[in-house]
Simulated scan of single mutants.
Amino acid sequence: MHSIQTDIQLVKTKAALHKYLSLTTGLIALAFSVVNIYLQQYDIACLDTVLGTLNLYFFWSAKRTGLVKPWHINCLLLSITAIAFYTFSIVDLRAGTSYWLLILPPIYCIFSGPKKGLAYSVLVLIPIFYLFITKSDTENLFLYRSLLNFSGAYFLTYTICYLYEVQYIKNSNVLHHMAYKDSLTNARNRHALEIFFRESNNPGNSEAQQPQLLILDIDYFKKINDKFGHEIGDIILTELSQLIQKHTSKENVYRIGGEEFLITLKNTTPIEACDMAEILREAIEGHVFEVESNAIKITVSIGVSELKQGMSFNVFLRNADKNLYHAKNQGRNIVHHDELLAS
Rank of each mutant, 00 (worst) to 15 (best):
I195H: 07
F197P: 04
G96F: 11
L131C: 07
Y42R: 08
F313S: 08
V300Y: 07
L39Q: 13
L102I: 10
Y99R: 04
G66E: 13
V124M: 15
P211Y: 08
L340S: 13
W100V: 01
L148V: 12
L141Y: 11
Q209V: 07
T6M: 10
L47I: 15
K69N: 05
L102D: 03
A119G: 05
L30W: 07
V124H: 10
H247S: 12
F59T: 02
N55W: 02
P211S: 09
F59A: 05
F32P: 00
L324V: 06
N294M: 02
I235N: 03
A273E: 02
V50M: 11
T97Y: 10
G26Y: 01
N267L: 10
V166C: 10
Y325T: 11
F228A: 00
E251R: 12
D226V: 03
A95F: 13
H337W: 08
S112C: 14
I235Y: 05
Y162H: 15
F129D: 02
D275V: 14
G66T: 08
S22N: 07
G113P: 05
C75D: 02
W71F: 15
E139H: 14
L214R: 06
E290K: 01
S200T: 10
G257C: 09
V253G: 00
D321M: 06
K19D: 03
L93W: 06
R94D: 15
L341E: 15
Q9I: 07
D43E: 12
E207A: 15
A153W: 09
E260T: 11
K250H: 08
L27Y: 00
I28S: 02
T49E: 00
E292I: 01
S33N: 02
A153F: 14
C161D: 03
H177C: 05
L240T: 06
T238M: 06
A283Y: 04
Y162A: 09
F196K: 02
Q245T: 03
I296W: 01
S121N: 07
R198A: 11
N252L: 12
R190V: 13
I28C: 07
I296L: 03
E259L: 11
H287K: 14
L47A: 08
F221M: 06
F59Y: 15
F58E: 00
S172I: 03
F88P: 00
H2W: 06
I195F: 01
A320L: 07
L213T: 12
L47D: 02
D92L: 10
F85M: 14
V50H: 04
L23A: 14
T81G: 07
L147M: 14
S151W: 01
F155S: 05
N202F: 05
L163E: 09
R318W: 06
Q309F: 08
L324W: 09
S121G: 04
L131I: 11
A82D: 01
Y144E: 15
E165D: 14
K266P: 00
A153C: 12
